[in-house]
Design a protein around this nucleic acid. Structure first.
Length: 588
RNA sequence: CGGGGCGUAGCGUAGUGGCUAGCGCGCCUGCUUUGGGAGCAGGAGAUCGGGAGUUCGACUCUCCCCGCCCCGACCA
């Protein structure tokens, strides 16, 4: 289909929209690809819709290629399945809810785990039917607290979600791997830079989980990567590199010392250096053990205090802690809680009072750095006193280990010990082994080969399809416009007819048709009376990978071919224009 | 949901307790122009985000609501 600028429903803007900050938002609006319809809700204009369809096409091809089958659920869903999985309440205000004329509850689907699970339960009942992989490309609705950055985080968005149903873990592994391989092919074809990072399976209760992040400075997700190996992980999923246990022999016994006015780590370190100087070096914050108490709100409504011990030079990272204690919610440990638990001395809490075996009875989890044989300065559970040379594993034990301390650039990589660095990205895909949560809640079982009913195990795999449009632009633009990777571009060639010479238009008309016939997708600027400068600016803004200019040098038998990305320009004889452009645009 | 900034025509903006709300881009008509967002002339287009209040008089001041952007808590 030949796109003619003279009739194309398009209006480019000369200036940036004032409300758009990030490049993808700015450029997609300015170039006339999208238009805001409501907060966080966008209309796709012809060129933008073409890009969206191209992206859908890539996803569809690769999903079909691994044997996944496409279905299509409604976006308007009844309440009941979400009631069964408890997400009607769990999802809270993020769900768009509505009622029908009979006052029955409905919702606009934020995700479709329940529907897929019920569909499989509905139709399949034997292990012989498994594995089965189903997917859909569907509009999702989430009433985001803060939609932002145009299409990057909207309240209505297009997502590809697929689910695998397997009889056992081993089979699930294969389903997961097949999807992972497909995702690599999909994101390669999208033409942007991305990383695969280890992620937390979180509340979903699964085991393996990875995220595909498009690397982007405006990305919302922070991740860490190793500077010497290919390890990359979501901040929540980073683990501390384990060190060898140290022998206790020869370590001095612990002793309690007076440490007046030292409620903070800094004041304690200063006091230690003044009153109890070390012989080898000065005391530092990392020699202290900081014990932070929080309250966990469990889904069943119970409140449980939890103490987390981390080296004093690190904060407890709330996101990391939250990810570890899912599905419980975090809440502060209040003054009332301190009053109710006199064994805990604010500012001087130490392992002596913590742990299920000790006075407070508060569960005590420690950072992996607090490993057996390491010596610490920590609270003595009395006002103005600390205990020195308290050795982990000798003088105290915790109830367990927790990864909740903040991660910092320069920390050692858990894989090879190299320095970690932080970077930002846009979450484009998330794959994880879902396990049996939904299958159990919705009673999706099949008969195994022994005739016994077993609950199926699931995998869940998502791609932000509309978000990909923005992520690609984030990754591929310059000061003057978008630079589409060929496979997602609305057209291969932006053909410009400049000037007013009828011969130019006649030549360009014929070239446009010949290109289309040869399978090259053409956006043809056939507007009359529009100055060349306007056409050049529009072509650069719109971002087709190849720009062909038919203009004044046609008189010399030449046309100009430009590469949008490199800026390279060359003149080719008009007679060879067709073959040159066909070759230029040949799909890889 | 907290902190900060901001809402004037499709887009970018000026404006002030007082006459018909101004400019640029874009759009329409005519003539000229045509390789880097052309020129001249004429024109259409705005309940100044919404509501309430103060006032002789509100785009302007006050309050409430809605929306937008940025920074934090949540997510593809």
């Amino acid at each position: 289909m030949l796109l003619r600028m003279s009739t194309l429903f398009l209006r480019t803007l000369r200036e940036d929209p004032a409300d758009a900050e990030v490049p993808s938002h700015r450029l997609l609006v300015r170039a006339g690809y999208i238009r805001r319809a409501a907060p966080g809700i966008y209309t796709w204009l012809p060129l933008g819709f073409e890009v969206l369809r191209n992206i859908e096409g890539i996803v569809r091809q690769e999903m079909n290629a691994i044997g996944a089958q496409e279905v299509h659920f409604p976006a308007l869903l009844p309440r009941e399945p979400f009631e069964a999985s408890n997400r009607w309440t769990e999802y809270g205000d993020n769900i768009f809810r509505l009622k029908d004329r009979k006052d029955a509850d409905y919702l606009l689907g934020p995700t479709h785990e329940e529907m897929f699970t019920l569909l499989v339960k509905d139709l399949y009942s034997s292990y012989k039917d498994l594995p089965v992989w189903l997917y859909q490309i569907q509009t999702k609705y989430r009433d985001e607290q803060r939609p932002r950055a145009g299409i990057l985080r909207g309240r209505e968005f297009v997502m590809k979600d697929s689910y695998s149903f397997d009889i056992d873990e081993e089979s699930l592994q294969r389903s997961y791997q097949a999807h992972r391989d497909a995702y690599v092919r999909i994101f390669d074809r999208f033409g942007f830079d991305y990383v695969v990072v280890e992620a937390m399976a979180g509340a979903m209760g699964g085991s393996a989980s990875e995220e595909f992040l498009a690397t982007a400075e405006h990305g919302e997700d922070t991740y860490v990567r190793c500077t010497t190996c290919d390890y990359a992980a979501n901040v929540e999923a980073v683990t501390v590199r384990l060190t060898e246990p140290v022998a206790f022999a020869g370590l001095p016994a612990s002793h309690v010392e007076e440490t007046p006015n030292t409620p903070t780590i800094d004041s304690l370190v200063d006091h230690l250096n003044a009153e109890f100087p070390r012989t080898d070096r000065r005391w530092q914050a990392s020699d202290t053990l900081k014990n932070v108490v929080v309250v966990l709100l469990h889904p069943d409504g119970t409140r449980e205090p939890l103490a987390v011990g981390v080296p004093g030079d690190r904060e407890v990272d709330e996101k990391r802690l939250q990810a570890q204690v899912e599905p419980a919610e975090l809440s502060p440990f209040t003054e009332e809680d301190f009053a109710a638990n006199p064994a805990l001395k604010k500012g001087y809490i130490g392992p002596g009072a913590l742990g299920s075996e000790n006075a407070s009875g508060v569960r005590f989890l420690i950072d992996p750095r607090v490993s057996p044989g390491t010596a610490w300065v920590t609270g003595a559970d009395e006002d103005a006193r600390h205990v020195l040379d308290l050795v982990a594993g000798r003088d105290f034990t915790a109830d367990g280990v927790i990864e909740a301390a903040e991660v910092r650039a320069g920390d050692p990589c858990p894989r090879d010990g190299g320095a970690l660095e932080t970077a930002r990205g846009i979450e484009m895909g998330h794959i994880f082994m879902l396990g049996r949560r939904y299958a159990e809640a919705l009673d999706c079982k099949v008969l195994d080969e022994n005739g016994k009913l077993v609950t199926v195990t699931m995998g869940s795999y998502g791609i932000g399809v509309s978000r990909a449009v923005a992520a690609i632009v984030e990754n591929s633009h310059d000061d003057i416009g978008i630079i589409w990777p060929r496979e997602v571009a609305p057209a291969d060639v932006h053909l410009l007819a400049t000037g007013k010479d009828p011969a130019v238009f006649e030549f360009a008309d014929r070239l446009a048709l010949d290109l289309e016939t040869a399978g090259v997708r053409v956006l043809y600027d056939d507007r009359k009376g529009v100055s060349p400068g306007v056409k050049f600016k529009d072509a650069e803004l719109l971002g087709m990978p190849t720009i062909a200019v038919i203009g004044k040098n046609l008189a010399d038998g030449m046309v100009e071919v430009r590469d949008r990305k490199s800026g390279e320009r060359r003149d080719v004889p008009s007679g060879e224009a067709l073959s040159v452009l066909v070759e230029e645009c040949a799909r890889i």
